[in-house]
Design a protein around this nucleic acid. Structure first.
Lengths: 338, 338
DNA sequence: TTGTATGCGTTATCAA
DNA sequence: TTGATAACGCATACAA
């Protein structure tokens, strides 16, 4: 096993010098630094995380988590994954501070970021799609903060990595799943939160892409409910009035419970096949009642855990993420394998 | 953060004494030991894995892996998970030695275990269901070896934990999936390796249990192919000859490629709906060709990784597994979300 | 039965 | 610009 000590001996310098050279702390002769780097490279030096952790205990890196999670049960599991990871890493002097948000207010998220900016070493955020947020994230990266986006990405920013699901494939899978459930002929109502939300739009695109393979699938309407269950309820009822021929509902976002309550008002034989995303408690309840036939599941727990893993690996182990984006699989769940 | 040093100070003894008391190394006055234990309990002492790892570097714990993996592509992913975990833990002086086996010979596994018994600190094994193996595992546990069973459990032994899939639920899910794919009426051929293999039998049970909910599902035959693709091929062809009414095939074990090759000989309009387990390369190929409609997936990579995690947590961190069994979910995969 | 000293690999401080 | 030294938490050989 190759250590700083070994490198120091081989290069004929002290461990302190090797440390400074390898970690770019300055105050070291460029020539010796080059020699040290070369030697480390040659021997395949990998810093020992145990030693690092032990020595870093006075540092106590702080991770800020900013998620618009209030009232959004999807994030409960994401947060549980983060908490489990945090517990695991606490021993390394690793602190996680949560900042939950209610809505999608750009100003609120922005001021929150400004508030915590000075006190964190890493940021895990589900960012709102807005140029101001993007700019702020870039600013924080420049200030040396390790930034991971979760569940929603801001491409084109300097964020170090992204953890989330594959939205386009989610739409593709939803369409394929519907075909499996209903056969080759369907009059489909699509329900989502907002066509301008990145993830929703991408799922819709995926759905439409996959629909090209099924000539007798027709989208009769696309409803936008702003992630509000009651609006979803009203609009879905309206959909059934305007389009009694609808025999399939694809819910691509939240608002699932509202949709289902509207479906339940139809007589059993007229109810469409319903599929949805995410196994939040109300959705599970609707599966148990047979209203929803199948869902697509996006490993929320693992999303949360993985995001914190990345921060830990960077801050404690000094490991840069392997990928710029960690995209988890879409899974299909029936009530039987929930 | 509470450390051995702190406990030593508070108890008015030396760190060495605390270490001996807490780790049961003997040579310590029962009274002081009791006081130390009490203090540790009160303060919620958790040994720091970084310190432990650092101090234990001379020990180099060795993990032996015994898996009948040769010629069984399912285990390729399991092994990949193990290898990734091993790479991650190598820095802690953690060594993994693989022992692949070809068949299911009890004697071979037994002699292999005897060979390696003396040289390992932990054992990860997919054990053959046999009293002799069970006895040997108990013996190894008694000798202080940490034992984890993978993919196949030996209940009633002293093994510390099990990592694998939920076989009964896999069968339940397979039946539900078939219903989704084909509707409420089906003449089903069940194909498995050996009715006496624990996992296969349990899946069959699960399938039959779920069938109670579908009055017009009928099992016309149950084929056993001993995990041999060519035997599977012959027997499946025979099935089609004897039962031309078969419109669904549920493959509950290996031999998938043989089954599919038999299916491909039927004219397209007479081909049954086929479902299978595990996304091994030949199975994926058959999905791409449309022969298999859907599969059930059991997170093989995670099984392998998790098994090694448990060994690492025990040997390096001193953490006993939280559960006596880690049962991963069955997932449903269409070609779209593979 | 108990305490002391040393080392594991890394980082930080201080002196040279 | 460098090197020596102490510290992090734990384990252990050895001394008392």
């Amino acid at each position: 096993m190759v250590t700083i000590k070994r490198i120091a001996e081989l290069c004929g310098v002290s461990r302190g010098t090797v440390d400074r050279a390898l970690n770019g702390r300055g105050r070291v002769n460029p020539d010796t630094a080059a020699a040290i780097h070369e030697m480390a490279e040659k021997l395949g030096y990998e810093p020992n995380p145990a030693g690092k952790a032990l020595a870093a205990r006075k540092h106590k890196p702080i991770v800020g988590v900013v998620i618009y999670s209030e009232g959004n049960p999807f994030f409960d599991e994401v947060l549980r994954g983060m908490e489990d990871a945090a517990k695991e890493y606490k021993i390394y002097g690793f602190q996680v501070v949560h900042h939950r948000m209610k809505g999608y207010s750009v100003e609120k998220q922005l001021t929150l970021l400004e508030e915590i900016q000075g006190g964190i070493n890493a940021l895990i955020i589900s960012p709102i799609n807005d140029p101001l947020i993007a700019k702020k994230l870039n600013e924080m990266v420049d200030a040396g903060i390790f930034v991971v986006t979760v569940n929603n990405d801001l491409e084109g920013t300097k964020r170090h990595s992204y953890v989330g699901s594959d939205y386009f494939n989610g739409g593709v899978t939803a369409c394929a799943l519907l075909q499996v459930l209903i056969g080759d002929i369907a009059q489909i109502g699509i329900v989502l939160g907002d066509r301008h939300v990145f993830g929703h739009a991408l799922r819709l695109k995926g759905f439409q892409y996959r629909m090209q393979g099924v000539s007798k699938f027709q989208i009769v309407d696309i409803i936008e409910h702003e992630d509000d269950d009651f609006l979803a309820y009203d609009l879905t009822r309206q959909l059934f009035r305007n389009h009694p021929e609808v025999n399939a509902i694809a819910s691509l976002a939240a608002g699932v419970y509202g949709i289902c309550r509207a479906v339940m008002q139809l007589p059993a034989e007229k109810r469409p096949v319903v599929i949805a995303f995410d196994s939040v408690p109300t959705t599970v309840e609707m599966m148990e009642q047979g209203i929803i036939k199948a869902i697509i599941y996006q490993h929320p727990y693992r999303q949360g855990h993985l995001a914190l893993d990345l921060a830990f690996n960077y801050l404690v182990k000094g490991h840069f993420p392997d990928c710029r984006a960690y995209i988890l699989k879409n899974e299909i769940k029936l009530i039987e394998n929930l």
